[in-house]
Simulated scan of single mutants.
Amino acid sequence: MTGIREIAIEAGVSPATVSRVIRNPELVSKERRQRVQAVIDRTGYTPNSLGVSLRKAKTNRLVAIIPDAISAFNYPVIRAMESIALENGYSLLLGDTQEMETRERSFAAMVSSRQADGILLFCPRLPFDVEPSIPLANQLPPMVNACELVPVNGLPQVNIDNRAAARDGVEYLLSLGHTRIGVIAGNLKSPSTKDRLAGYKDALRQAGLAIDEQCIDVGDYGLEKSEQATRRLMKQPQPPTAIFAFSDEMAMACIATLCKSGYRVPDDISVLGFDNISYANYCNPSLTTIAQPMSDIGRVCMELLLPQLRGEPMVAQNIVLDHTLIIRESTGPVKT
């Protein structure tokens, strides 16, 4: 299949020059432009429709590509994005991927098929094939990446410092006298999970404590798996005196499991969550958690996307928003 790289080789120019001939021919000398165009005409190559021409074919729709569109964390993010989208004449379509790459690409293809104008990406994979030698902004539609960050340079991205947030939470548990702290982690392939796990280990090392891998279990952001992880942690010969769950929903499943098993929270064991979803203040006991600014995440995503929708170039940015430790009733001093 003929692509930009093959065109460049045959025309004796760089892939970037081919890209400029397609998108900004006035920036290329007449001689080079003619050479490239001759190869394009001969091969019948059709440029990727995600380029400039696509940006001019407005649908006034945006697509948010999200691993779990109905999670309590994502709801405030989506609501904030939708509010700003509507204010600016756009409707917001939700693409619930269930962490499947095929679905991510299918929803992203809505832009190339002119069903949407831009993408709000909450997945850790770029749903397009790109040529590394060409600037990312020349190959992608308007797009912002948030929360689960894609490891490529050039995208505007919005997140919190997950590593620092987890470290702050564990340091708080350490300040209460807990030295054996269990973890219920999310998906181990998730960038946010990796960062939170690193922050947990940072705090233990800084306190002079060894890392016990038996204290780390996986709930995969699911309620049933979090229940199972809680039971495994508490069956250890030396069970933890505190558990740090990487989401509030997993923390609530953890608390429910502990209570069913006869433990008192926080008298017997403390539980720390992550996110500060709306239910965190209303469970029993109310949940100590690390708050993410969910509405601000959605707002900033739209603020970065709107200029692109107006035709301005994509600009690489990494916006890091503040996190906050919210202390409630689910944590207390270690039992002596």
Rank of each mutant, 00 (worst) to 15 (best):
I7A: 04
G12K: 01
S14E: 02
S19W: 06
R32S: 00
Q34H: 02
R35P: 00
Q37A: 05
G44S: 13
K56F: 02
A64G: 00
I66M: 14
D68V: 14
S71W: 14
N74S: 11
P76I: 08
V77S: 15
S83R: 09
E87G: 05
E99C: 15
R103A: 15
R105S: 08
S106L: 08
S106Q: 09
Q115E: 02
Q115P: 05
D117K: 01
D117N: 04
I119D: 01
E131N: 11
I134E: 04
C147M: 10
V152H: 08
V152Y: 11
G154D: 05
Q157H: 02
R167Q: 12
V170K: 03
R180S: 10
Q206D: 11
G208P: 03
D212A: 05
D212C: 10
I216T: 10
D217H: 08
E224G: 05
K225I: 07
Q228I: 10
T230F: 14
R231A: 13
M234C: 11
A242D: 14
S247M: 15
M250A: 15
I255T: 05
T257G: 02
S261W: 01
D267T: 00
S270Q: 04
C283L: 01
L287S: 03
Q292G: 04
I297E: 08
Q317M: 14
V320L: 13
H323T: 14
I326Y: 06
I327R: 12
S330K: 13
S330Q: 07
V334P: 06
T336Y: 12
